[in-house]
């Protein structure tokens, strides 16, 4: 498996310009709000989550990762009909987890990215499910089959998306 444990010195840390840092998450949020009305199948994807994972893994800093996740998740909550914080908490967990993982493992190749995205998609759904049921009292039905199918779809899209976003990386 292409995931390899690497020492901190061996791992490259990247940063992004301010327009990319702000523009890419906003574009992801915009497309997530806009495209499903035109292409209903697109609702299976979670572009803000993929962007969260990408930035978290590239920066490899848990603090930056969790704040990136929290910011993107909270904006996603603001656009939705439910109380603010459900996506915020879920993406905070993903941002923290992905950046912590990125700091320890080399996740630069496609196979590793695929597995990491699939795993974090399921983590995200599980946290969302727990918060929505436990705190907001929403009726949620957990479906493994749907979760895995959606996770695979997001992982495939994520690998392609990360390849595009790699172009914006700058070495720190």
């Amino acid at each position: 498996m292409p995931i390899t444990y690497t020492s901190g010195e061996q791992i490259e840390v990247y940063r992004f310009s301010i327009p990319v840092t702000i523009g890419v998450p906003l574009l992801a949020l915009f497309l997530q709000a806009f495209l499903p009305r035109r292409l209903p199948f697109f609702s299976i994807f979670d572009l803000p989550l993929l962007v969260t994972i990408f930035f978290a893994m590239a920066r490899r800093n848990p603090i930056t990762g969790l704040f990136t996740g929290a910011g993107i998740g909270l904006v996603q909550d603001m656009l939705g009909a439910y109380p603010i914080g459900i996506f915020g908490i879920a993406k905070t967990v993903v941002g923290y987890g992905a950046s912590s993982l990125g700091a320890k493992l080399d996740v630069e190749n496609a196979g590793a990215r695929f597995l990491v995205t699939l795993g974090f998609y399921l983590v995200h759904q599980a946290v969302y499910f727990a918060v929505a049921r436990g705190m907001v009292n929403l009726t949620m039905n957990w479906s493994w089959s749907r979760g895995i199918v959606a996770g695979l779809a997001n992982a495939f899209l994520g690998v392609g998306l990360y390849f595009v976003l790699d172009k914006f990386k700058q070495r720190a």
Binding site: A33, R37, Q76, L79, G80, A81
Partner: peptide, 12 residues
């Protein structure tokens, strides 16, 4: 209709 809530879990 100009957009959605951006989440499959909330139908709005």
């Amino acid at each position: 209709v100009i957009g959605s809530s951006g989440s499959d879990l909330s139908k709005s």
